[in-house]
Simulated assay, not measured.
Amino acid sequence: MPASASPIARCFARSYAEARQKFLTAARQTGATLTEFPHPTQTGHEGETLAMDVAWVGADDARHVVLVTSGTHGAEGFCGSGAQVAMLGDTALHADCRAAGVALVLVHAVNPYGFSHLRRVNEENVDLNRNFMDFDAPLPQNAPYAEVAPFLLPPHWPPSGEDQAALMKIVAEKGMPWYQAAVSGGQYQDPGGLFFGGHKATWSNYTLRRILARFGAGRDTLRWIDIHTGLGPWGYGEPIYMGPDHADQIGKVRAIWGNSVTSIYDGSSTSSNLTGLAWMAVPQTLPAIDYAGIALEFGTLPLGEVLEALRGDHWLHRHPEADENQRTLIKQAVWRAFYGDADDWRDGVVAQVTEAVRRGAGI
């Protein structure tokens, strides 16, 4: 970071290794209890250890927990990590939470592999926020994805004019909302495709459920904020309801976080209706807890550019022989799609996440 960088900017990193070090250092400085869940098989882009790290800030016997997760979609972790580091240094927030009997639980890098390797998915090309399924039951069919899939990942990148025209033709015929839902809704048929939900629970899925059970068991309430990027207006953190399609539950979440909370179920969200979302781990592990949750989705680039970045990244995943120049261009597009590299964006992220935590804590 340049010397003129704002104090908030210094909380953010430009690699997973740097982000993890900032998080661990900030947690130790504030006296948080740290727990490390190292990845058993994978290493990072720089050969570094990968882990899901948990910082507990508050009394051991706190009855109420506010959980903040980052990096569920790896490359989106730069945003959430920076906000978590900033909150670890926010002593006023810690004092107010402690006075209210609330503990903060910050889970850093739910998908450390994607975070380090600048991919949205994990080491198995699985979108973790489509992976919380009952894999003993028949998996859903995404017929619209199968319809558009032949046009998404062409043999060459960038796509030829002919390939791009074919994709644009079906988008023009069906509409952008159809295209977004078809691509992003989650699919379980093509392991090498976009938004693949997997055929079994991943390490991150299993580990997140372990964390919920370990830190949530015996508590009275759990308020969960999962930080994401890539949809919506620049720097705006859209609060998206994270729970079942029940009117009373949605009303409860809006009572906590305000009427600006949107929902994938009624079309008010910039997100499409999705399958296999991570919040489903809560009823699986803590069925009796009083739960409410939101995703905070911070906008970066227009939707079309974000989807193009994801298409390029998946093309690269399928073509490891790509030259270094092409690899660099594709990864730069992913970086821009999921991180707003500007002080106004970072400042806004920290302010909005902190406000959401305060609302979740009832302070």
Rank of each mutant, 00 (worst) to 15 (best):
E321V: 09
A13I: 00
G31N: 04
H73E: 08
F23D: 03
I294C: 09
Q180I: 14
G101P: 07
L194A: 09
G251A: 11
P144V: 11
R120S: 04
T300Q: 11
C79L: 02
Y206A: 12
I264Q: 13
E147R: 01
D226I: 12
N273Q: 05
A99F: 03
A137F: 04
F196W: 15
R98L: 11
V171W: 00
A83K: 02
E124N: 15
V54Q: 06
D53G: 01
E355Q: 04
G251R: 12
G243M: 09
M1I: 14
G185A: 10
E18T: 05
R359V: 08
A342W: 07
A3M: 11
G175V: 12
R28T: 02
Y236F: 14
S204V: 13
Y179I: 03
W178C: 02
A19C: 01
L208R: 08
A322G: 06
I225G: 03
W279V: 01
I8A: 02
L310G: 01
W224P: 04
G31E: 12
V102M: 01
L153Y: 12
A247Y: 05
A75G: 03
G299Q: 12
F132T: 10
Q284R: 10
V171E: 07
F23R: 03
L67R: 08
A337T: 14
L128H: 08
G114Q: 10
F135Y: 15
V261H: 03
F298Q: 09
R120M: 13
D96P: 02
V349D: 09
L50Q: 13
E18R: 12
G232K: 06
W178S: 00
S269T: 14
L208A: 06
G293S: 00
L50C: 05
A356W: 05
D343F: 02
G175Q: 14
Y16R: 02
D127S: 11
H319C: 10
H45L: 15
S160W: 00
A95V: 12
E124A: 13
G312Y: 05
E36P: 00
A75S: 13
A281L: 09
T328N: 07
A182V: 00
L277R: 08
T262C: 11
L152C: 01
R120C: 08
P302F: 10
F132H: 03
A9H: 07
E18L: 03
T72W: 07
H73G: 05
